[in-house]
């Protein structure tokens, strides 16, 4: 099939969003379902259908959401209302909006795990400690399902 000439193609915008908490393993389809649920709940079927949101990239703690030009503010607002991805609590924080994915890739700063320093006990529970830049420390409860996460800093850990 012959592609449409550029002037007749639908104009798109791309929104870069950071996925929180850091280190969360997410599937692109799960992110898409969360975005669609949030957008439909906020703007309704008609407006969401016209905006045509889609998740085109999801890796390294970032997701790129595509939408029609002119609807990017509405979709960014809908992204702010995402509270879970799959069964886990999560948040999407918009970083930038652009007309090309290439421009957004330049804005991606990989969030690298500094070190995993075993485990610690807090109250009755055991947690795995994950350290991130800027002295951020995430504690994930040891277990199989529905583990609790706590968000600390190095200074908080030293106090305990």
């Amino acid at each position: 099939m012959k592609p449409r000439p550029p002037a007749m193609r639908t104009k798109r915008r791309y929104i870069l969003a950071r996925i929180l908490p850091y280190g969360m393993k997410v599937d692109q389809k799960q992110v898409y379902l969360s975005v669609i649920e949030a957008a439909t709940s906020l703007w309704g079927d008609a407006a969401t259908g016209l905006a045509q949101p889609a998740v085109v990239f999801c890796d390294g703690g970032y997701a790129v959401v595509r939408c029609r030009r002119g609807t990017e503010k509405d979709i960014a607002t809908a992204l702010a209302t995402v509270t879970a991805i799959g069964d886990e609590q999560a948040a999407l924080r918009t970083v930038a909006t652009s007309g090309t994915i290439h421009a957004l890739r330049r804005r991606i700063k990989p969030i690298r795990l500094l070190s995993e320093t075993g485990e610690m006990k807090l109250g009755e529970n055991y947690f795995t400690v994950y350290r991130y830049p800027r002295q951020k420390v995430d504690l994930v409860e040891k277990g199989i399902k529905h583990q609790m996460s706590l968000f600390f800093t190095e200074a908080d850990l030293e106090e305990r």
Partner: peptide, 8 residues
């Protein structure tokens, strides 16, 4: 909550 004041 689940986040300390310093982290927030």
């Amino acid at each position: 909550g689940d986040s300390t004041l310093a982290r927030m």
